[in-house]
């Protein structure tokens, strides 16, 4: 029997909100799946859409961007730009027939440790049902 498929989800988490939310989940001993590979960024708008494209093409099963709720950005408006860029990128993915469901944007504040656990579990389950990223096995990218 092969082992159960555990996806790899590259997660770009904003230092001020989502990363702290993940920290809170940790200090509260809440469990979230080992699929989440967190990368701390100073702001969700630091995430160049090319990071997502690259993660996807290099075989990440999912990519998560976590940021502050709209209006709560530490830098006033960073997450509004993230939102537009994310909308643009998912539209591009849809237009090219790539799986935009593997990309996810979530607003999780520093106080929402439980939400972080819920979102990461839900997203992991969804990716599990979708299966491995087909890009993983392609060498001609």
């Amino acid at each position: 029997m092969s082992k159960e498929f555990m996806p790899k989800i590259i997660s770009f988490l904003c230092k001020w909100c989502t990363y702290s939310g993940a920290d809170l989940a940790g200090t509260n001993r809440m469990k979230y799946p080992p699929s989440i590979l967190p990368l701390r960024v100073m702001c969700s708008s630091r995430v160049n859409p090319v990071f997502l494209i690259k993660s996807f093409l290099y075989g990440a099963d999912g990519v998560l961007i976590g940021g502050c709720h709209p209006g709560d950005c530490h830098y006033q408006s960073g997450n509004y730009y993230t939102r537009r860029r994310f909308a643009i990128l998912t539209t591009i993915f849809d237009s090219l027939g790539l799986e935009s469901e593997r990309l996810r944007l979530s607003w999780i504040s520093a106080a929402e440790g439980t939400k972080f656990v819920r979102v990461s579990t839900e997203f992991t389950e969804k990716i599990k049902s979708m299966g491995e990223n087909p890009a993983k096995k392609k060498i001609f990218l």
Binding site: G67, P70, G71, S77, N79, Y80, Y81, R83, R84, R85, F86, A87, I88, L105, S106, W107, K115, R118, V119, E122
Partner: peptide, 17 residues
């Protein structure tokens, strides 16, 4: 240019889980 501006009340379905 779309990427240089934003509106606060747009795309509200994104990111809300």
């Amino acid at each position: 240019i779309p990427v240089t501006i934003f509106k606060e009340d747009e795309l509200s379905e994104l990111g809300n889980d």
